[in-house]
Design a protein around this nucleic acid. Sequence first.
DNA 1: TAGAACTCGGATAGTAAATATCCGAGATCA
DNA 2: TGATCTCGGATATTTACTATCCGAGTTCTA
Lengths: 159, 159
Amino acid sequence: MKMSNGVEWALHGCVTLSQSRDPVPAARLAELHGTPPAYLAKHLQALSRAGIVRSTAGQVGGYLLTRPAAAITVLEVVQAIDGTSPAYRCTEIRQQGPLAVPAERCDRPCAIARAMASAQEAWYGALADITIADLAAGIDADSEGTAMADVRRWLTSTA
Amino acid sequence: MKMSNGVEWALHGCVTLSQSRDPVPAARLAELHGTPPAYLAKHLQALSRAGIVRSTAGQVGGYLLTRPAAAITVLEVVQAIDGTSPAYRCTEIRQQGPLAVPAERCDRPCAIARAMASAQEAWYGALADITIADLAAGIDADSEGTAMADVRRWLTSTA
DNA sequence: TAGAACTCGGATAGTAAATATCCGAGATCA
DNA sequence: TGATCTCGGATATTTACTATCCGAGTTCTA
Ligand code: FES
Ligand code: FES
């Protein structure tokens, strides 16, 4: 029940990208976040495959969000990095052992799987209600409204 | 974001134990569920440490629930097997890089960690609303009210 | 009361996943 | 046309999970 560590880097990266109108290279993001550049690049590729960011090659290339930050939910980012398979997986052990249930009666998921799936639905629903824009606003509030401005300045300064 | 596979075995085991008034050895549970006996024993030890089951040694020993099934939540079982650490962990990367936030201002968790923690709270809350008795009732309903009776019969038959 | 058999408990190998890294393919600008 | 900078997938290393074994302790029997 441990989420991949790259999810945090992806979330921070999306928040940073939401403050830039020009493509940002992976190496620049890694420098800002203090993370291994190559590994961050691998996660950005996953975001690209999921359609959350768009990549541009060449000298002035980099990554850019495909949609406004308010239209990207945290759930999308989590699923892009960590996969879409549910956390709890029923291995159908009810069909094994002396009291095995015949396969013909197992057309529906078992009661335990249904309960776990409904609980996870609550989790995913909560994640879907949070957008990248919400996260940026929260970080801004914690820093008295200067954090995002500092990010924008830094992105253009060393360019 | 993948939950340990032993959680399923622990849940099935607790449901089975809720149908027995006498201690059930780990080997018997493994036979009923078609699982590796030694590995299931390891997970039962975790349940014992968490105070969910009580172990008895000796010839007629085995495992037994410490409380009524209606007083044991699924959340307790999940946390006993998979650990209590939250799925999302903030590594405080906001304190690294050129725009590092000074440590004196990091007394509270960051905005991203707060959002993720609140979402997980929804998940844990849903898991805490489900008890082992609920799971047993659901399995019984799926089998037209015969599953739990079959379990009780099997537990006493080969004893 | 002594013995034997059965139980749990933690310590010990094997395997899959996640972490971290590298170099080649492709595109942009000079 | 050439050089430089970018992404992309293929490649090692480490961690965590999976699976297993044998010893310590307890109960029943003779
Ligand atoms: S059979 Fe075990 S959770 Fe469905
Ligand atoms: S600093 Fe990254 S989630 Fe808190």
